[in-house]
Design a binder for these strands. Sequence first.
DNA 1: CTTGACGGTGAACGGACGATCAGCTATACA
DNA 2: TGTATAGCTGATCGTCCGTTCACCGTCAAG
Lengths: 211, 211
Amino acid sequence: MDKLTVRQQEVLGYLQLYQRRCGTWPSFREIESHFGFRSTNAVMGHLRALERKGYISRVPGQARTFRINLDLGDEERPREAMEVMDIPIYGNIAAGYPDGVESSGEIGRLQIDAGSAGVRRTRHCYALKVRGESMIDVGIFDGDIVVVDQRPPRDGDIVVALIDGESTLKRFMNRPGSAAYLKAENRNYPELHPVSELSIQGVATSVVRHL
Amino acid sequence: MDKLTVRQQEVLGYLQLYQRRCGTWPSFREIESHFGFRSTNAVMGHLRALERKGYISRVPGQARTFRINLDLGDEERPREAMEVMDIPIYGNIAAGYPDGVESSGEIGRLQIDAGSAGVRRTRHCYALKVRGESMIDVGIFDGDIVVVDQRPPRDGDIVVALIDGESTLKRFMNRPGSAAYLKAENRNYPELHPVSELSIQGVATSVVRHL
DNA sequence: CTTGACGGTGAACGGACGATCAGCTATACA
DNA sequence: TGTATAGCTGATCGTCCGTTCACCGTCAAG
């Protein structure tokens, strides 16, 4: 296939972009004004070149009608290797440890890269679908998915805690000079809970929400 | 949402079909001849009804231009195969196109599965690091990463919009009976913006926050 | 020195195409 | 018995928009 000039690539790119943004194709005059041309014939020249080189097709005389035969970014795409975790999503973790082996409450799976998610070991990691609004003030809503790393919490961490047999999100507070406690981040229900043995399941490292 | 008559469903279906087949939208006269009408006004009536009931949007006077807000078969979404996407994360998209070719502002990469992220095509998708607090009331904070799908927005979608040369998150409002506008979800700064040509970069489909 | 590709200006033409007005029938509703 | 709403005919108007013609510049190849 014939290679495109820089200008022709720009025009083709604009066609693709416009189509994706607006759901339709641009008119000659819209292309003209976007590139600052002062004649629609400049547009005509580029479109004819694109058609001659096989990148687009047209229906003569038909307004706002193109067809892209060869996409602009079809060649490059340097695929890098990166460690992607495939972790289970649970609806609740009332039981104790969700070990993967005995994972009954799995409601889906999540793929995310370990590095940016702040997770250390795949085996000790899972995701949890949030119920309730206990952390609404820090932007974690009902239905969100949190990635949980099973590691000891530090002061200020958001943790998954087992309270009354239910797993809930709380902030772990462990200021020097006083006993550690759990705190809900919801100004309407400012709960406080003591930290009991084995109540902390893990530390939330990431939040994912599908809009 | 108001219900459609049989005839109106047929017209909406024809719009969708034509778009899928031809990559563009039909003209009034093409719709007319397809249904055997003898007046373009018959077409006009149906399109006005579809718009009034919120199923489509139009740009008055613009040829072959529609936008489908409510798909005919929006219920049976066939659950796409789980596919991990590797997409770039940008800090800002002020320039114009984030094309991959000219991707200078890439600040990282994100791996996420396309199915649950609500994204359709890898090529038309990227991630954006949020700046500012314009969407703080819906739990999207400064520093969060949003997955952006480049597709036409529907009413209520959270979109990436180009305002004053900066890419910002806003909610796209397109209620039937009034002009579309953009709205910030921050009770302290309740901004409103008009929607201008090409100002909408894409629709936010997921939010990821690393705690 | 010519030739061709590339990129562009400026003006004019003509058809494609959406918008609108007037008027028609049929059905449902109250 | 009036009155909406859906659905459609037929004609006209105005403009959006693709096309074309004439012409001009630069640059590289033969």
